[in-house]
């Protein structure tokens, strides 16, 4: 048996899980409650999010949780008994995460 390259994906999964666990409930609270309820002006939030530090944070908040999703959902399918198509599923899921990361980096940092 050969040692797996899973550590690469597991690290991204863990980092994404950490980012989502710490930031997402509060972020959803802001975008789904505080802005619609008028506690924060949408345009103010847009300006806060345009700050260079926010842009870096946003790239992390988009990229890493998507790797978290890709990794976890790949195993959810196995849990549900879908054992075939392992490689295409992995390419599709991680590919989505990679593609979104490139999009986010282009939109926010370039």
């Amino acid at each position: 048996m050969a040692r797996s390259n899973e550590p690469a994906f597991w690290s991204l999964f863990s980092a994404g899980g950490m980012v989502a666990a710490f930031l997402f409930p509060a972020a959803i609270f802001i975008t789904a409650y505080m802005v619609p309820a008028g506690k924060i002006e949408a345009d103010n939030l847009r300006m806060v999010m345009s700050h260079p530090i926010s842009r870096l944070l946003l790239v992390a908040m988009i990229s890493l949780p998507l790797f978290h999703w890709a990794h976890r959902f790949r195993f959810v399918l196995v849990d549900l008994g879908i054992k075939g198509f392992k490689l295409p599923i992995a390419i599709l899921f991680y590919g989505t995460a990679v593609g979104s990361t490139i999009c986010a980096a282009y939109l926010l940092l370039v």
């Binding site: 989502a20 997402f24 975008t31 908040m61 990229s63 949780p65 978290h68 999703w69 959902f73 979104s100």
Partner: peptide, 11 residues
């Protein structure tokens, strides 16, 4: 993970 990934897409 579906909702975590979904919100990342929203961001």
């Amino acid at each position: 993970c579906l909702f975590v990934g979904g919100y990342a897409m929203f961001l």
